[in-house]
Simulated assay, not measured.
Amino acid sequence: MKAAAALVSVGTALLAGCSAQKPDTQANRDATAKEIIEQVKTTPDGTSTADSLDAYKEDLARRISQVNSLKVHVERPQALLRSVIVIKYVVDKDGNLVRSEVVRTNKDKASEATALATLRSTAPFPKPPAALLSGGRVELSETWLFNNNGRFQLRTIAQPQKNE
């Protein structure tokens, strides 16, 4: 019995080592953001090449998810979500986050804080194309879908929810 328990412990340790992720530090987030920025299709001055507001919103959703990958639920969201948070936010012509506000919540303060923090930690964003700007800014909204484990997906790029 002890040998079997020891074998399980060794197997668990090996699996944990294989799936180890980089610690969630500012330096690692900055490095990840830099990699993502370099992958986003932009002009030499950092302007997004998205040709519509929906395409720009999808690019930003992917970037938010990648920069905050340790907080993202990677499988299909559960049927009954823990929390749904909608945030309206404004990005200026230089890609800076100008303003953000929660516009829909179920009063889950932890989920609200996570949603706002993940948005802030991702900025600055690729510059929006001039055609999308109104008064030097673009206004967007995104929905954070939280599972019971506290991880989220963004509705713009989320997988379909489970039925049960």
Rank of each mutant, 00 (worst) to 15 (best):
R99E: 15
L80Q: 14
D108V: 03
A110C: 04
K107T: 07
V90R: 09
L81M: 01
E101A: 06
V86F: 02
K93R: 12
T105D: 10
N106L: 05
A79Y: 06
L97Y: 06
K93Y: 12
R76A: 11
R82Y: 12
S83N: 02
K107I: 04
T105W: 06
Q78W: 06
E75Y: 15
G95V: 04
D92Y: 05
V74G: 15
K88C: 02
L97H: 06
A110E: 08
N96T: 10
H73T: 12
R82C: 12
I85H: 00
K88Q: 11
H73S: 14
A110D: 06
R99W: 13
N96W: 09
S100N: 06
V74C: 14
N106G: 09
A79F: 06
R82H: 10
S83Q: 03
Q78K: 12
N106D: 14
V90Y: 03
P77W: 11
L80H: 15
V86R: 04
K88W: 02
E101K: 11
A110L: 07
R82M: 11
L97E: 09
L80T: 14
E101V: 09
V72F: 08
I85E: 00
Q78R: 13
V91W: 03
V98N: 08
V103D: 00
V90M: 07
A79D: 10
I85K: 00
L81K: 00
E75V: 14
N96M: 08
D108F: 01
R76S: 14
K107Y: 11
D94N: 13
E75A: 15
R76Q: 10
D94R: 11
D92E: 05
A79S: 10
V91K: 03
R82P: 11
V102M: 03
A79G: 09
R76G: 09
V102A: 03
L80P: 13
L81D: 00
K88N: 07
Y89L: 05
G95Y: 03
A110I: 03
N106P: 05
K88A: 07
I85S: 00
N106H: 09
Y89H: 10
I87Y: 01
R99F: 14
S100F: 01
H73F: 12
V86Y: 02
V103T: 09
V74I: 14
A110F: 02
V91F: 01
E75S: 15
R104I: 05
V84D: 07
D108P: 02
D92M: 07
Q78Y: 13
S83H: 01
R82S: 14
L97C: 08
V90D: 06
G95D: 04
A110W: 02
K88T: 05
V102W: 03
V86A: 04
Q78N: 10
V74P: 14
D94E: 07
V72E: 09
S83E: 02
